[in-house]
Design a protein around this nucleic acid. Structure first.
Lengths: 255, 255
DNA sequence: TCTTCAATAATCGCATACAATACTGTTCTT
DNA sequence: AAGAACAGTATTGTATGCGATTATTGAAGA
């Protein structure tokens, strides 16, 4: 991310749905590039949850001024990927367990909507695309790399795209990226979140046009993601929480 | 909005739910104030859909520099209240009919989630608060002022607050404000969107703990808002569209 | 009279400069 | 030696300036 200040191969736009990719909240290309860079860095955990984000050094790395960095921070903050505290600057967001539950609950509601919307409306091409994707997932699942996690996330994004509902897509993307953060904090080491078989079943229900079943499957699927991956609250956010046990074992008393 | 540059009586925070009102995407108080001012101006239609938003004059009016105005634009753009076109500046958003449908669809999904979440979990105090609110709505309904519209919007916000799910609340708020825009463009003159009786029924179902019925009611309620208010696409955005009929009646031929 | 083009004016994109605030290490007091 | 007050440093908040891009207007040519 150092020697390549500002390039991004048009990650948006080319959706297979009906819309013309109108860049609503785009800003200038450079601002967008900064935003993309930071967003990816956070999602890929190059920037770890809670990490400080100094405007100065980041701008320097990316070859832009603080102005653009701040702009990106603003957008990322709205999306819940960074926390912005007045006069204290920006940190990569560190969702609490409570927020994590909130995100998952909303995501369930959103994706249920996706399922209902798509049931019985999949074109042959879309159907094929989804199956191809699932096959990719299966391949990646065997090697159990980080690929697996990325792919199962993209499956859900693909579904949201196919609804042709731009807002729904945006919300699902947002929920999805926040889930990345959450799993980075609270998730088990390498549990590959989504069971591929559940994706298969879902496609089947969608193709059969069984909206109720598709919604129920999606619901159950995401529910099981929570219980499967989100059980061990390992990390602690606040310095105080981290140090509390050390203090205790050394006989120090927190104020 | 001219002689009062930057004051706002803390519109957020004091939710009756469980959270501590942590200001995640706050920014400095002044930036927040600019954001609030613009947001309110748009929702109350002091700034009409499609209207140009020059950084310079707005900053002047609000007593801040373009920097803060731009920051506010960024946030409002993410929320879909302004459109930000590179090198062309900002306009109040002018959702297309297609986008309007998208927003309503997502909103239905979100509020169904609210209903399910709340069913059987309302405290006595919350229940009373809702009923008091409905009574207010009834009072306002008789005079049929703009109060009526605001109140029926707030009913839905109140419900979302009561879930205690901060993200859900944010999304519902966002959807709700965009609905204001949409109704300003495509809505009938003074149809007071929500039928108060439907709000009553909904409260009843929530109190009874009938999640399915509550969800169905909410679904139907919002669906009927669409058909009730969103039938006549009156307004046209582009100057050309506005003038087309005039041209025609004068025998002029648009290119 | 309509089109094309150039000059001007207005506006935006972005960097930078300055002011305000928070942090850290030190010294002074008790 | 512990705590408080202070100063220096680092970082953020905001305004402003300059170059770049776009809209507008008026004039020349068809």
């Amino acid at each position: 991310m150092a020697a390549r200040p500002l390039t991004s191969p048009a990650p948006d736009g080319s959706g297979p749905a009906r819309r013309k990719a109108e860049p609503r909240a785009a800003g200038s290309p450079r601002a967008q590039a900064v935003y993309n860079a930071l967003r990816r860095a956070i999602i890929e955990q190059a920037l770890k949850p809670g990490m400080k984000l100094p405007e100065d050094s980041i701008g320097e790395q990316l070859g832009v001024s603080r102005t653009l960095v701040r702009e990106a921070f603003g957008r990322l903050a709205v999306e819940g990927l960074v926390e912005l505290k007045p006069n204290r600057g920006a940190n990569v967001a560190y969702p609490t367990l409570e927020e994590a539950r909130d995100v998952f609950e909303v995501r369930r509601g959103l994706e249920r909507l996706v399922a209902e919307n798509l049931a019985g409306r999949l074109t042959a091409a879309q159907s094929a695309e989804l199956e191809a994707h699932v096959r990719l997932e299966e391949k990646a699942h065997e090697q159990d790399g980080p690929e697996s996690i990325r792919l199962s996330g993209e499956f859900h994004i693909k579904l949201a795209e196919m609804t042709g509902n731009a807002l729904l897509l945006r919300y699902v993307q947002e929920a999805s990226s926040r889930c990345s953060l959450i799993l980075a904090i609270y998730g088990r080491p390498h549990s590959s979140e989504c069971a591929v078989s559940e994706h298969r079943q879902l496609i089947e229900a969608l193709r059969a046009g069984d909206a109720a079943r598709a919604a129920a499957l999606m619901d159950h699927h995401l529910q099981s993601v929570v219980t499967r991956a989100l059980l061990a609250p390992r990390g602690e956010r606040d310095i105080r929480d981290v140090l509390a046990p050390y203090a205790l074992s050394e006989g120090l008393t927190p104020s």
